[in-house]
Nucleic acid binder design. Structure first.
Lengths: 334, 334
DNA sequence: AAACCAGACTAGAACGTTCTAGTGAAGATG
DNA sequence: CATCTTCACTAGAACGTTCTAGTCTGGTTT
């Protein structure tokens, strides 16, 4: 249990003042190359590491970003991992605070502010804009698009994601495409509106089946779709469905399977999120993939911009992970 | 952007010294009830919150625990959420650091030490014991049992978990129970040994099929089991299987399904982890459930004990989530 | 040769707490 | 009545950095 070396120890070892060691360690101008080298050697020899507490306390700029994430937020951990290099690239550090059933967003935010973060990155914020805007540090809403001019945001371009799905299906020959929406879940409205607009542009009849973010919501939606078939001619029924997210799509698929409807030969299904579930061998769900690296980079840039007074709202285009839940329109279904 | 109030502001407001405010805020003895009330009122009125940086820098005891978790570690987020209340109960605070493909365990640990944590809780440590033991703060290995006397640990009692699974199956009438192991994955050896011991106690023939932690490992194991059936009498074949974890069990189920083997009527299957996957509607996998609250509490207690020089190694008993992948031994299989 | 300048370096204050070592008053003990 | 003890409270140092406001040296300009 030896005490860790401090600036003063390094200064003594190198025969200079503490202030000069600080200058060298931070890499700011004000030291000659010769002493710079000598100081770095002394630091390395003693195994010196700057004390984050003292640094945070004293610096005018802490260069620390606070990240609030949800313990079971889909996609949150992917973003987390991408945030570390993204922040490092702009010279920022990151500290985390989890939100969950037993720990509110407010608590998570307060603990970060107590540590002196310069800005807050909130993944899928649950608080209303007013609460976020009232924080004493700039807030970046990540994964959840916002247009509030008091906030910044970095999120997936939901409209582009839905467009990818719909255009993929059209390319396979599908024209009657339905949408299972996300109910009141975050992003649901944006995705539904994008779907409706795409249908309108094509002169196609939209069919929105009410859904939700969970497996059971998808199951319910599937039963509703199956019930539609009764007494309708086949050429009015959808041949493809874009479901709000992978969880719901999984329930949807399960219910189709139980009813004996074959995927993709009778019905093509697209999910959203490209979660772990979508890639499972027995699922193989075509899904809209959000780009964690791009979103993380945009989020950190938004934070940096906000610290200079500029609020930015970035939409990151998603991509499509094509698997075997979608297939060309079969002759039987025409 | 008003500056946040400090101890000095509260002291001025209440007409006492900074030191006394510190005493009141920390709730330590040394102030009369009357002034205590007055100080708290002043603090509340100003919206005072202690500055974590100054506090960490100055205190002899930071009462801060550093948690290293894996961005895609199964079960890690469940533990995370449980750790907050568990730590609070013992008067500790928690700070997080993520490990991932692009951020090593060492980096995660160093950043926590720079912040002045008193002890490290490492979820599913990847570093060798020697590296962990060499850290300047006590290390608690969480979710990964350890017997190294230089470390502490809090993990699930793997033997008890396997016993739960095996006894559940025996209770259903199964006597020929196979095990798909986890290969080199953490915990695999402990689970396999427990299985073999249980078989020996019952005078039963063990059948260990080599597997691994992933879906594809489970698929491979299933093909191996199916191949065994060729040229063997039915009364020598297993009627139930305990698989290393849920991921592998999922692949295992998928392959059985493809081969037309019915679960649970022809073969009962038990998983391990009770992950989100196991509860999915079309999976409904009986699975050994680790207890996050109990593990988290044990981990924090281990940290507290380690700070007093006592290393503890706690094994937390799991429970069994019974679903429909297991059923009484059918007449056909006898 | 006086005046200026840039660069390298330093002394000491400051950040907001907690800790140490007290002070002063009121009551208890001999 | 002198001496201890306890309690409520305070002054000021300390934690390890960064920041401000310098000083000193040696070279360049007037």
């Amino acid at each position: 249990m030896v005490k860790r070396p401090t600036l003063a120890d390094v200064a003594a070892e190198a025969g200079v003042s503490r202030a000069l060691v600080s200058i060298v360690i931070r890499g700011v101008p004000g030291a000659s190359d010769a002493t710079r080298e000598r100081v770095l050697a002394a630091a390395a020899q003693l195994g010196y590491r700057p004390d984050a507490r003292a640094r945070l306390l004293r610096s005018s700029r802490s260069r620390l970003l606070g990240v609030v994430f949800d313990v079971d937020g889909p996609f949150h951990t992917e973003i987390l991992e991408a945030l570390y290099p993204a922040a490092a690239a702009l010279g920022y550090d990151i500290t985390l605070s989890a939100r969950g059933h037993r720990r509110s967003e407010g608590e998570a935010i307060r603990s970060l502010l107590d540590l002196g973060v310069e800005a807050l990155l909130v993944l899928g914020p649950a608080s209303p804009s007013d609460a976020l805007a009232a924080q004493p540090a700039p807030v970046v809403s990540v994964l959840e698009p916002h247009t509030d001019p008091r906030l910044s945001s970095a999120a997936t371009d939901e409209a582009a994601g839905i467009a990818l799905a719909v255009k993929h299906l059209r390319g396979l020959g599908h024209s009657r495409i339905a949408h299972v929406d996300g109910g009141t879940a975050a992003g649901s409205e944006a995705r539904r509106l994008a779907y409706e607009q795409l249908m309108a542009e094509d002169g196609a009849q939209p069919l929105v089946i009410p859904g939700g973010p969970n497996e059971t919501d998808g199951m319910k939606a599937a039963r509703e779709l199956l019930a539609l078939r009764v007494g309708r001619p086949a050429n009015e029924l959808p041949t493809a469905v874009v479901v709000f997210n992978d969880d719901a799509a999984l329930g949807f698929l399960h219910e189709l399977d139980a009813a004996g409807t074959a995927v993709p030969s009778e019905l093509s299904v697209v999910g959203y999120d490209d979660s772990r579930l979508a890639a499972l061998a027995h699922v193989q769900l075509t899904s809209v993939r959000q780009e964690p690296d791009a979103i993380a980079a945009a989020a950190v840039e938004a934070a940096a911009a906000a610290l200079e007074g500029r609020r930015t709202h970035t939409l990151v285009p998603p991509s499509l992970a094509v698997r075997s839940s979608t297939a060309p329109l079969a002759a039987v279904a025409r």
